[in-house]
Design a protein around this nucleic acid. Structure first.
Lengths: 343, 343
DNA sequence: CAATTTCGTGAGAGCGCTCTCTTGACAACG
DNA sequence: CGTTGTCAAGAGAGCGCTCTCACGAAATTG
């Protein structure tokens, strides 16, 4: 007499189990009376369908796997993940789908995760923060498992993805610096084995080219998406070119590192050197001066990821869906915007 | 002829389904020959048990729910959550348990989540970042569902928890400021409806008392765990007492806000005012100057949460388990430590 | 008005697994 | 040599649900 079953609901409602099932699953072909009495019984008993039993017969799981791959996750995206997860969670909630989080922290766990995902325990998979050569999305996709990738997928993988407009955002950032009258604009690159890193670099070059400014590879320096990486890169850049008057950093974390370096070198920001980051994470507001940055809504991205995946699952097709989300430049003190506090 | 079933494994191995099941589940009472032939068949067919079918009969789910409640989650803990999740994930991995993430973003979703959790879809629940009066943990616990809370649980709730040593950490922070010769030490409080906020305040007072310094309520000011909250609080404190020479902020975010305020007021940090934060989040390294802070390992906390919950599930008891994790003061520039870059 | 179609409903099989109960083989005992 | 005990292995029920199929009543048709 613990948890009520469909059987009991049916008995209380005075109908067959089949009819009760139909009502619970919203089948259209059910009489108004039957529907009402079942609904009443459901409420009365506090009935909730047993997922296991349902899965067993439908061969669906009503759950999607969200994979956060190491070690990239640790470095790149910490500040965002919760946002994205929130978005995914929101997008899934309406469908009563559950979010199964898979964080593989070792090659062994990764294998286990892959086995788990390919054995039909989830209806679809959302993948995250991949390095350029990760075979997982392609692999899952070829096994017929619906997959959506957050961010640009690895080269050549023919899978659906949702990405922020990295090019547009970076282009806007560099153009903004140019509009401020800066002419020696350096960039601190992200990892070049990650699509986002590559695209932001390309946008940097495109913006310079569009403005008729000369390209100079020695104004590009980069590495990891970390604070230290940004700091070291800035040190090197200053050493190479003491006349740098602006920097576009491929992430806020790197921009924060660059800020320290500039500070240590006695450069004033933004008077001597203007700087713009990317991500508009929480960090952008906690630096001194506050950091101009390219804003991207990670929650929206999560929501789109969920929607896209649900579509693929519903449609049972293998169509590749691509969604690119707008980014927006937020100008703060570090590139000549008003002082913080306005927010 | 898609995914192989136990039945097929049994047939290939030439034994009964029951025996195959015994082997798969590691029952001791099974002959060596049977065991080997079943194991061979499992490998050959690439058999993986169907979780749904198993759950249906065992009434276990091999999954735990991790609940992140709004709106607290958004404010307080963004930077940590991924760490904690990583820890939980790691702690669960060895047992092949899956992590079901539940982020309720509205009262309606919250109700749905609660129904979901209480209807036996998970074997246990890990709860997070609660406000003082959240009835959920007590509620779940009273329904016989294993629960562990991250952080101090709401007053009066008799549930297991894993917490950082907030008192010890805050005490050490304030004592450190005293050791630096500071005598007018203010504090920026966290929300007083959250246990962590209350405890850190108490520790602040205890440290002053221990050092024989006078208590002065007008040196305490606080609000939300946000940057803006910290900034406003510092503004007020400076107005009240222009002779403040140190500040203990209950979070890094608040400390960062205080830093802006001090900067705007022309106070030098740490020369005029020393400051220590709490959390040692990524923010602590991106402020200028770098921020002394109380370090807590959120990943370890996650791992302990998982262990604790698994113990409770296994033991099937209602014992209340409490774990307190050490915290550690990290001294950086903002309270007289060496300049950044060492790290 | 009989023949047909439509539609709501019920009966019942069966998804893949675990677990109890039973059986059979063999050893130990009086 | 018959009895009891032990232990490995099989038979079979049944977990809660969905879904196909069959059925009877109502609605439609010629």
């Amino acid at each position: 007499m613990g948890v009520p079953t469909l059987e009991e609901v049916a008995r209380v409602a005075g109908v067959s189990r089949a009819s009760a099932s139909r009502v619970v699953n919203g089948s259209p072909s059910v009489g108004i009376q039957v529907r009402q009495s079942v609904e009443r019984a459901v409420v009365e008993l506090g009935y909730v369908p047993n997922r296991a039993a349902r899965s067993l017969v439908t061969r669906r799981n009503d759950s999607v796997g969200v994979v956060i791959a190491e070690p990239t996750g640790r470095i790149f995206s910490d500040p965002f993940f919760v946002e994205v997860l929130r978005g995914i969670s929101g997008g899934l909630a309406s469908r009563e789908m559950q979010l199964v989080l898979v964080m593989s922290q070792s090659p062994e766990e990764e294998r286990r995760a892959e086995r788990y995902l390919t054995r039909g325990h989830v209806d679809g998979v959302i993948l995250f923060s991949l390095h350029g050569d990760d075979p997982l999305p392609e692999h899952l996709h070829s096994q017929g498992i619906p997959v959506v990738v957050g961010g640009e997928p690895p080269r050549g993988a023919r899978v659906s993805y949702v990405d922020n407009d990295n090019h547009g955002g970076a282009f806007a950032a560099v153009t903004h610096l140019i509009d401020q009258g800066r002419i020696r604009i350096a960039t601190i690159l992200g990892p070049q084995d990650m699509p986002a890193g590559v695209t932001r670099r390309r946008a940097y070059r495109d913006a310079l080219r569009a403005a008729g400014l000369p390209l100079d590879e020695s104004l590009e320096k980069g590495g990891e998406f970390t604070r230290e990486g940004g700091q070291r890169a800035m040190d090197v850049l200053l050493q190479r070119h003491s006349d740098i008057d602006a920097v576009f950093a491929a992430s806020d974390l790197m921009a924060a590192g660059a800020l320290s370096s500039l500070h240590a070198a006695g450069r004033r920001v933004p008077e001597d050197v203007a700087i713009v980051g990317f991500d508009d994470s929480i960090i952008a507001l906690s630096t001194q001066p506050s950091l101009s940055s390219v804003h991207q809504s990670m929650e929206l991205m999560g929501r789109e990821l969920a929607n896209s995946l649900l579509q693929t699952i519903d449609a049972r097709d293998r169509a590749v869906r691509r969604v690119v989300l707008e980014t927006q430049l937020v100008v703060r003190e570090s590139s000549g915007g008003p002082p913080t506090g306005q927010n």
